[in-house]
């Protein structure tokens, strides 16, 4: 039977390759906070319990390194997006992956945003919201021109549909 063998194919387009670096730096900043806190703790404690603290710091460093090497590349292989005149379709995540599909007729807003870090890499993300709080679709790590084009296309096709989108 058709349903038994059905599977979702990945969306057509990959995000920008620069996104790998963006994700790496973003995660690195997070790890720096953790490592910084541990170092500060060691300095303040002034030699007490170093038998626990130094291995803990080492473990953190190893985890951070593994995360920074694996996560961005894995993420890049997963993240994909596609828009058609009828629907927006994305796949995101890495360890936990998520497909999101929303019909263009139900789109309420299309926003594009560039954070400071994204600006550094010339990237942008696009968020498509629907009337459901559980339904916003975010495509991150897009080249700026691509993001602008998506916003333009989606806005145009969303305006072409009628109804109150709830």
């Amino acid at each position: 039977m058709d349903v038994q063998t059905a599977a979702l194919r990945p969306p057509l387009h990959r995000v920008s390759r620069t996104a790998i670096w963006y994700w790496t730096i973003r995660a690195a900043l997070g790890w720096l906070v953790v490592i910084g806190a541990q170092v500060a703790w060691m300095v303040v404690a002034d030699g007490d319990h170093d038998a626990i603290r130094i291995p803990a710091l080492a473990v953190t460093a190893v985890l951070a390194a593994a995360h920074l090497i694996v996560m961005p590349r894995w993420r890049y292989r997963v993240h994909r997006w596609e828009t058609t005149p009828e629907a927006v379709y994305t796949l995101s995540g890495w360890f936990k992956q998520e497909w999101r599909i929303a019909p263009v007729s139900r789109i309420q807003t299309v926003d594009s945003e560039r954070g400071p870090l994204e600006q550094l890499f010339g990237l942008a993300n696009v968020t498509v919201t629907t009337a459901s709080a559980a339904g916003p679709i975010t495509i991150s790590g897009l080249a700026r021109e691509t993001a602008d084009r998506i916003v333009h296309e989606l806005t145009a096709s969303a305006q072409a549909t009628v109804g109150d989108a709830t």
Binding site: K96, Q97, R100, A134, T166
Partner: peptide, 25 residues
Amino acid sequence: IIGWNVTRSFFQRRAGLATLTATTA
């Protein structure tokens, strides 16, 4: 129903399962 979210964690993928979410207002 407005749209669908399908999430699969690493372990769900290994088990061939997924969590389907129907989004609604």
